[in-house]
């Protein structure tokens, strides 16, 4: 099953780079792309794949480093979801399904990592967010191996997991 891993963020804005850092660990092992915005560029990358995994920073008010594992449906039904690139990822994915249903991945998984600082110029993440990277990488590996958790297991109380 052809799969793509996408990291979203800005490589020089501290925690905003976390999605990129996770995705880059899979370069050469699976199709991997880095994007800096959640607009049509995400569609450009995922159309034609059967599965897509998106890793991005998120600000939901949880403790920094908290991980959430979501499906596209979770985004559509979660009015409070606010990623580091605002509410654009759900809109982009909805447009993808509305216009290109057959070409969209049958499975889209989003690994969202709670961020703390995304305005300081630094290529390194804050310690709490950096500490979440290995666990996020494991989640990607499990997804690639077809061993992802069910939705209930992924975020039973909607508050994510701490590393």
């Amino acid at each position: 099953m052809n799969t793509i891993v996408i990291g979203i963020g800005n490589p020089v804005l501290k925690d905003d780079s976390v999605g990129i850092k996770v995705a880059r660990q899979f370069e050469g092992r699976v199709d991997t792309e880095i994007v800096m915005a959640t607009d049509f560029k995400v569609l450009d990358k995922i159309l034609g794949y059967e599965r897509a995994l998106i890793v991005d920073g998120v600000r939901l008010g949880n403790e920094p480093g908290t991980l959430l594992e979501l499906d596209a449906d979770d985004l559509f039904f979660s009015a409070t979801f606010s990623g580091t690139h605002n509410l654009s990822l759900p809109t982009t994915l909805k447009i993808g399904y509305d216009l290109f249903g057959g070409e969209m991945p049958r499975e889209i998984r989003i690994i969202a990592i709670e961020v703390a600082d995304t305005t300081t110029f630094d290529r390194e993440c804050t310690p709490a967010v950096a500490a979440a990277i290995p666990q996020a990488v494991e989640k990607v590996k499990r997804f690639l191996a077809g061993q992802s958790n069910s939705i209930e297991q992924r975020h039973p109380a909607g508050r994510g997991e701490r590393p």
Partner: peptide
């Protein structure tokens, strides 16, 4: 920066 003209196309 890139935030304010992202999709869904309107600022909250």
């Amino acid at each position: 920066a890139c935030a304010t003209h992202n999709l869904p196309g309107r600022q909250p």
